[in-house]
Amino acid sequence: MSIVKDIQSGRKPLKRAYVGIFLWFTGRAIQATARVDQEVKKEFDNLPDDFTFSLGCLPDGPCMVIGKEKGKVKYLGSNPGKRHVHVRLAIKSVDAAFLILSFQEGTAVATTRNRLITDGEVPYALAVIRILDIVEVYLLPKIIASLAVKRYPKGWSIGRKLGGRIGVYTRTLLGI
C-alpha cells in the first residue's frame, strides 16, 4: 500500500443549496428592482442593450445571470448560453459565497478581502456593484443592510422605501 493516500474532496450540499437559492432570489430581485426603482432603472439604461452580467461561485458552483433584453432587465437563470457576458463576478469558493450571501460581508468588504474575482470593464462592474447595493437595501432590514453597504441611504422618501420594498418583494416572489 502506498504511503500516500488519495482523497476525493467532499461536497458541501447545504451551503451550495443556500447559495443557489439566494442567487436565484437575488436574480429575481434585481429584475424586480429594475422595474420599481428609478435609480436602478437609470443604471441599466446607461448600460449597453445586450448587457449581461453573472454572479457565481468557483469552480462550478451556483451562478445567476442577468441580462437586458429589448430594453428590459431579465433574470436569465444560471447559464448565459451564447450571450456575451460583460461583467463576470466570481466568488472564490462556496464558503466565501456563503459569507457574502448571508450578509456577513458586504460587496465592498468582500472585494477588499479578495473574495471576488471581477472580470470585465471596470465602469460596468461598478454599475453592477451600485445596483447590488440598492437591491440589498430593498431586500434587507436596515440593521443588516447598513452592515452590507458602505453608506445606508438617508434621503429616500417613504414611498421609495416602503412602496419600493413591497413592489420589489411582490415582483421577486411572483417573478414579474
Binding site: A108, T112, V122, P123, A125, L126, I129, V149, R151
Partner: peptide, 13 residues
Amino acid sequence: ALSDGASIYNPED
C-alpha cells in the same frame, strides 16, 4: 469618476 475602480476601496461611499 463614477467609472473608476478606486472608489471601491475608499472608506466612505
